[in-house]
Design a binder for these strands. Structure first.
Length: 921
RNA sequence: GGGCGCUUAGCUCAGUUGGUUAGAGCGUCUGGUUUACACCCAGAAGGUCGUAGGUUCGACUCCUACAGCGCCCACCA
């Protein structure tokens, strides 16, 4: 006997263990797959987007796990060879940042430890959070294949990363160059363009006398090292200076002499129409400098201090310099005016340091070089990224994100992949350096890792190698080599390795069975916020790497579909963040309180792809209630089924339906089977679950089970319905369904049981219609009773004028009598006149009367009828207007016109009846 | 500056290619110890679908403009 209430906590861990031990999570590779093409390909695979190994999972992860697991369980039950591959990401900057924060709490810095010791600490931290994460993934009921779990720093993945790097290098796509990068002086690293956030803030615009010009700037300190002043070529005011040099005096005798250049980029209307060009610390200025061949001196160093170029201001911190300079300029009468204005400050989105653009030697991936053979043409990485989505080889759901994707790719610049942090894949490049440079490096390497800019080391040779190249030793003196090899101390952008996730996890570059079987993956399910960070780069890496391995195009895609879910917000529509514990929901706490199944439902019902959704505890509690309902539906069925009476044949056959209700519920059930599968395949998860929810609660529990109590002897039917129902729910609520399944004496686990098939012959619309009528009669009587305030328990008499439906109603009168609490039901075939002192209700083809002995006050009934009458008359009038419109009659499709006409006749009939009732009252 | 999304019942949201009197959950109100479930049952109230135009026989649905909210991208001398 099942407990009265489903307590998720008592079952979930056991069930998960049962699944895990059964081996159900690993794909069953049957011969069909390896043979391949002839029959429908029955493989389904998803790579789990690897959570960052930096702590705990949040609701965003829960949504992802829930949605992916729905698809996975569905396909597994359909008999597909299904792989769900889990893993974690080393999350370079994020993790390093976290560990540095921990160190900071103990007043330590990473440089105090040195590279190796620091990395040891990070590794330990990561191992801990990986364990936490694995646990949480299990708690969500995720049916992923743990035997194939991967981590971005695994040896095999590391190998893949190096291979990717090597190929890019050989194809001349990777290059090392002096480019303007986003430098974070706080974390001492560069960050990618899309890792930069802009903070809105109030700033001051300074207007400075700049030779003959007035230049407006928010950063006067950078002007100290300008190499040109630019004006618009059409600006008549400054024409006479074009091509000449001007002397600009700041203060304290600091002077510069700069050429006047002309460029369309300059806006004549802004400020005085002249800008000072600072190539080393501004992207637009850098581009100007490239175009006009200007020098690019560094004005601000990597620590955020002024360089020698700043003359008397050298050595000052940026902000101190600004303050001092402005004061000096003011004294010298060169500060024309100041203005407040809104500016956005670039900050590192991890860690929050203020970005200072700097020119540095960095590794880049050239996205414009024609490098991939794709569909008969040599194309650049950028072009292939566009082409795969344009051609719909990769579909993005919802489609509107394709537009933003294209826009982003079209404006993509070369990808800076080197990072000056320690945690990550170290760049597999070695530099041959002199003995002197090597000594410099030895001394400084634990403090600063910037070989070229800070240590000023000049490599004599650059070489790709995964392992240390042999020393180029003097043959006679091995202990005193003339040259040394230093490995590039930088690490790779974290997205470099995660871009390979779909195939590096399957063993690439080795030719593995897994890769052959499961790539490309079917769906990439992730949040829209990392469409650019990750999804786009996966397309880049996959097409490039796999195409260069000689695979055909369709094998080279990382996935066929991208499903983007929205972000979870709190009830006020605000982003949930840990800093606001008031509204921040911890998935584990919710699981503890309401069960995983309830949490899962709350995360996707009512959500549409790409749209954010809000979540709050009551919602989860609501789905807990539903899960309990499902439990009790089963409980009721199990109490009524005599398992011993069920033969093996019964168990595996479709029950013969006897009554109208039986036929109705089977029809509904089979329609449901059909729709559920279709909807999951179409990624309409919310719709699928909503329909299941309505069927379970409103059709099955509220009606069919009540009827089963009346009609009795439904062992076989209840057994059959319950079995199908548990299967249908299983992808959505895996735990409760598996617990209940055990009660059905099944030879296999539900997780591995086959998905039900929809039987067309059982879908019978006429039976559904007939049953609806019975339902309407019962609701109608209940409604009248409630309005007349008849005691709920009191059994009363009802009279039906049933016309052609007489037989149907007679056959189902027991149901009507019990559910509407009647002691007596008279059914008339002929129209009868309204019995005295009775309430009445009109359905389409029949009339209901409740004769009431004690009915004295007819006022209420009169009011009710009058209200109904006026509503109907309004309705009739609108139909009348429609039908009187000749254009409607001639233009609208015939069926629509017919329908409207029928509605009109119905309404007219009802009005007539109500009118006569009102007269009789 | 460019783009995208949202605006439907008190709240959170559905509403498939235009065609029944616009739906659900929660909440509210009225009643209820009907032996599966009070995490329940029965019944009810509640919406001129953001505003203004347009297309159409017909608009919640398509088009245009506007407003409010939110997001993304770019720029910011």
């Amino acid at each position: 006997m099942l407990e009265k209430v489903y307590n998720a906590k008592d079952h979930e861990d056991d069930i998960y263990q049962l699944w895990e031990e059964s081996g159900a999570f690993s794909p069953k590779l049957n011969s069909k797959i390896t043979k391949g093409s002839d029959s429908k390909k029955k493989v389904f695979s998803i790579s789990m987007p690897p959570p960052n190994a930096t702590g705990t999972l949040h609701l965003g992860h829960s949504v992802m796990l829930a949605l992916e697991d729905i698809m996975i369980r569905f396909h597994r039950m359909k008999g597909d060879s299904t792989l769900y591959l889990p893993g974690t990401d080393h999350a370079a900057i994020a993790t390093q940042n976290k560990v540095e924060q921990i160190l900071e709490e103990n007043n330590k810095k990473r440089t105090d430890l040195g590279r190796e010791k620091f990395l040891e600490k990070v590794r330990k931290f990561v191992a801990d959070s990986q364990n936490t994460i694995r646990n949480q993934i299990r708690k969500m009921g995720t049916s992923c294949d743990w035997s194939r779990e991967k981590y971005t720093l695994d040896d095999s993945l590391n190998k893949a990363v190096n291979e990717f790097f090597k190929r890019l290098l050989n194809d001349d796509i990777i290059y090392r160059g002096d480019r303007l990068v986003n430098w974070d002086p706080k974390m001492q690293t560069t960050v990618a363009d899309d890792e930069v956030d802009f903070d809105e803030s109030k700033g001051i615009l300074y207007y400075i006398q700049y030779g003959p010009f007035i230049v407006a700037t928010s950063r006067p300190e950078t002007k100290l090292g300008d190499t040109a002043v630019a004006v618009n070529p059409d600006d008549k005011r400054w024409k006479k200076y074009l091509g000449k040099k001007v002397e600009v005096e700041f203060a304290k005798g600091h002077k510069i002499t700069v050429p006047v250049i002309a460029d369309q980029m300059v806006d004549m209307k802004f400020g005085s129409g002249a800008i000072g060009v600072t190539p080393a610390h501004s992207l637009t200025d850098f581009e100007l400098a490239e175009k006009h061949n200007l020098e690019k001196p560094q004005v601000i160093d990597f620590q955020g201090k002024m360089t020698k170029v700043a003359g008397p201001y050298a050595g000052l911190d940026i902000f101190a310099c600004r303050k001092k300079l402005v004061k000096d300029l003011e004294k010298a009468g060169r500060l024309v005016k100041t203005e407040e204005y809104d500016q956005s400050v670039a900050v590192n989105y991890r860690g929050g340091g203020i970005i200072e653009p700097q020119i540095m030697k960095q590794w880049f991936v050239n996205v414009n070089k024609k490098a991939i053979d794709w569909k008969g043409k040599k194309r650049s990485l950028k072009e292939v990224m566009l082409e795969t989505v344009r051609s719909k080889d990769i579909k993005i759901i919802p489609g509107r994100f394709e537009k933003t994707y294209f826009h982003w790719i079209e404006n993509l610049r070369d990808w800076c992949i080197s990072r000056q942090i320690w945690w990550g894949h170290q760049i597999p490049i070695w530099y041959k350096v002199s003995k002197e440079d090597f000594a410099k490096w030895q001394k400084a390497k634990e403090k600063s890792s910037h070989l070229f800019q800070i240590l000023n080391i000049t490599p004599l040779e650059t070489k790709f190698s995964e392992t240390p190249p042999k020393y180029l030793k003097h043959p006679n003196n091995p202990t005193d080599p003339t040259f040394f090899w230093i490995r590039d101390p930088d690490t790779l952008d974290t997205w470099f390795s995660s871009s390979m996730w779909t195939f590096s996890t399957l063993g690439w570059p080795e030719k593995t069975e897994d890769f052959k079987n499961f790539h490309p993956t079917d769906v990439m399910e992730t949040g829209y916020d990392i469409l650019f960070f990750w999804v786009a780069r996966m397309i880049l890496a996959s097409t490039y790497c796999l195409r260069s391995s000689g695979l055909p195009e369709d094998k080279c895609l990382p996935f066929k579909n991208v499903y983007l879910h929205g972000l979870i917000r709190d009830r006020n529509g605000k982003k949930m963040s840990k800093s606001n514990p008031e509204t921040c929901i911890d998935p584990l706490e919710m699981i503890e309180k309401y069960g995983t199944d309830a949490l899962r439902l709350s995360l996707f019902i009512g959500a549409t792809p790409g749209n954010d959704m809000s979540l709050y505890e009551e919602k989860i509690a609501g789905y807990r209630n539903f899960v309990n309902k499902l439990w009790n539906v089963a409980r009721f069925a199990l109490m009524n089924i005599d398992m011993k009476k069920l033969t093996d044949q019964d168990r595996n056959s479709i029950p013969k339906s006897q009554t109208l209700a039986d036929k109705w519920i089977l029809s509904k059930l089979h329609k449901l089977i059909k729709n559920t599968g279709n909807r999951i395949e179409k990624f309409a998860f919310s719709e699928a679950a909503e329909e299941l929810y309505r069927f379970t609660w409103m059709d099955l529990a509220d009606w069919y089970l009540e009827i089963a109590k009346i009609e009795k002897n439904k062992d076989h039917l209840l057994y059959y319905i319950l079995r199908k129902l548990l299967k249908l729910w299983h992808p959505f609520t895996p735990f409760v369904t598996e617990v209940l399944w055990k009660e059905l004496d099944q030879p296999e686990l539900l997780i591995e049981s086959p998905w039900p098939r929809s039987e067309k012959s059982l879908i019978r619309p006429t039976k559904e219609k007939e049953f609806s009528l019975i339902r309407e009669i019962i609701s109608g009587i209940r409604n009248l009773r409630a309005k007349a305030k008849i005691e709920p328990a009191k059994r009363i008499k009802a009279i039906l004028s049933a016309g052609s439906k007489e037989k149907l109603i007679s056959e189902n009168q027991e149901i009507i009598k019990t559910l509407a609490r009647l002691e007596n039901l008279e059914i008339h075939k002929k129209l009868i006149s309204k019995p005295a002192k009775s309430l009445s209700k009109f359905l389409d083809k029949l009339e209901i009367y409740l004769p009431l002995e004690g009915l004295k006050d007819l006022k209420q009934e009169k009011e009710r009828l009058n209200k109904e009458l006026s509503e109907l008359q309004c309705y009739q009038a609108s139909l009348d207007k429609k039908l009187a419109n000749k254009q409607f009659i001639s233009n609208a499709p015939k069926e629509v016109v017919e329908k409207e006409k029928a509605k009109y006749t119905e309404a007219t009939k009802k009005i007539k009846k109500i009118k006569s009732q009102l007269k009789n009252l």
